[in-house]
Amino acid sequence: MLLVGTALLGAYFFLAAFSQAPLNPEKVRYSGTVEEILSPYLSQDWQLFAPDPLADDRGILAQAFCADGETTAFYDVTTPYIRRTQNDRFFPSRMSRLVSTGLQSLQNTDPVLNRLRRWETEQKKPVLPPLPYEERSRDDTVRLLSRYALTQMPGVCEGRPQKIQVRVYVHELRPWSGRDDPAAKAKEPVHVEDLGWRKVSDLR
């Protein structure tokens, strides 16, 4: 009994460890099979802030297009929940993760494709365009972020907005080398990307 159990346990941990290994030729070949066995009940991810942790302040703003043809200013729909998390140290609400994880999944893609595109960029070759499943996944995330933004602006356009647009911002915090340089704080760049307008009727 103990031997059989140990063998099963060994097989599980072998597959689990394999699924967590860095990209290598064997992983490229067998990762699909291993994922099929582990997913969904035994799937796992233990990178935990590694290898490259987030190093910037990211969030979203949102604006609405009203029935009278006016476009509102951008509203900050990220900071209120960040403040709430900061003020509650013991099991804080996870509302802020809707935005942070949503933004991460906008950029997540297959590690092999990631490496290929990086190589193409370095070699100054045409970069592989997003594959259909990547486009679908991005579209789902944009829809989710837009729906979230819509719910965070209940009074906008007197409660009857026609369309919503999300703006992603990435505020680069000064690097370690500039930690003692007051001028570096003033020079922290902010990058923005406007996602496509979404009809409110499609979001509800």
């Binding site: 990178q47 935990l48 590694a50 290898p51 490259d52």
Partner: peptide
């Protein structure tokens, strides 16, 4: 182990 080894590969770690 996985988390530690992933960190070892990261530049800021």
């Amino acid at each position: 182990v996985v988390s530690g080894l992933c960190k070892v590969q990261g530049r800021v770690w």
